[in-house]
């Protein structure tokens, strides 16, 4: 466990410090916020995909549930931001519990069913028939709680908690047990690992993280549409960032976000189609030539990646 603390101090703390100080020297706070959000999402997805091997294609469902959990609490309960953040977490956790039976599915079945589940939640929330409750497709406005600096800080705290979790998984016995489940659930059971409980915990943790990210996203931007909160790109970006850096490590997803989301912001804003094209080619090359991510370049030579 001492190694976990050391890895957190050497990898995560500098990142957190840099992101905390960055708004003082760089004016595009929304961009910095997006970096934090994708770091949270990539690490949250890492907890379930990296450690247990389930590919949650509909991961954005938890993010959207969190965003709407926050928004509904503010709109209908007049909640202040922090209780509303709790509602965001609860909403995502509740969705996670409802979707727990999906963990019985494996491989592509799970990925597809999870995608369908996220789409179904989106279709319910954006349905005009529910306009009185969710504002349907017309989106929500939360100007009463708008507080960019505070929400930026809360996002950083969520990121810190997520990084602590991943550093722990990377070094604790529980993380090892999860990886055993990923490699072979039958063998893991014979090693005494409670397979169902292990992956349910990882699933719910990962749902909670995405829900909190969605909540703080709703708070920070304060005006959004259902198609923003349930944009499939959130799932895809989180998957690709994690894969690119190296799943089941702490450093991998961080590198993935910094490099690829950085690239996205250099070329993506002005000509989206060209970015989409480059991105597509990059994904294909990544899967074909570096399926275990950047981290594998180092681990292959016998070194450990934090």
């Amino acid at each position: 466990m001492r190694r976990g603390v050391r890895e957190f101090v050497t990898v995560a703390l500098p990142l957190l410090a840099a992101l905390a100080l960055a708004p003082l020297v760089y004016s595009n706070e929304l961009l910095l916020f997006n970096f934090i959000m994708f770091l949270i999402l990539a690490q949250g997805l890492n907890a379930i995909y990296g450690f247990t091997g389930y590919l949650p294609f509909g991961y954005v469902g938890f993010f959207g549930a969190g965003a709407y959990g926050f928004a509904l609490a503010v709109m209908h309960l007049d909640a202040t931001p922090l209780p509303a953040m709790a509602c965001a977490g609860v909403a995502a956790l509740a969705l996670g519990v409802v979707l727990t039976p999906l963990l019985r599915l494996s491989g592509a079945y799970f990925a597809i069913a999870n995608l369908a589940a996220a789409q179904a939640v989106y279709q319910v929330i954006s349905n005009p028939a529910l306009q009185d409750i969710t504002k349907g497709p017309y989106g929500v406005t939360l100007s009463s709680v708008f507080a960019p600096a505070l929400s930026y800080g809360v996002a950083l705290i969520i990121l810190a908690a997520t990084l602590i979790l991943v550093a722990w998984l990377r070094n604790a016995r529980f993380g090892l047990a999860l990886q055993a489940i990923r490699e072979d659930p039958v063998s893991a059971a014979m090693a005494g690992v409670a397979v169902v409980r292990g992956r349910t915990i990882a699933w719910l943790l990962s749902a909670l993280i995405a829900g909190l990210a969605g909540g703080v996203f709703a708070w920070h931007i304060s005006v959004f549409y259902p198609e923003t909160a349930f944009d499939l790109s959130f799932s895809i970006f989180a998957i690709v960032f994690t894969l690119f850096g190296g799943a089941a490590t702490q450093l991998g997803p961080i590198l993935g976000v910094l490099l690829l989301y950085g690239l996205y912001n250099v070329i993506g804003i002005t000509v989206p189609q060209y970015f989409q094209l480059i991105y597509g080619v990059l994904i294909v090359l990544l899967v074909l030539f570096l399926p275990d991510g950047l981290a594998s370049l180092v681990t292959r030579r016998g070194f450990r990646v934090p």
């Binding site: 590919l55 998957i239 690709v240 894969l243 597509g280 994904i283 294909v284 074909l288």
Partner: peptide, 9 residues
Amino acid sequence: ILFFGVQQI
């Protein structure tokens, strides 16, 4: 993931 990339292309 790979065919998602192809889809993007």
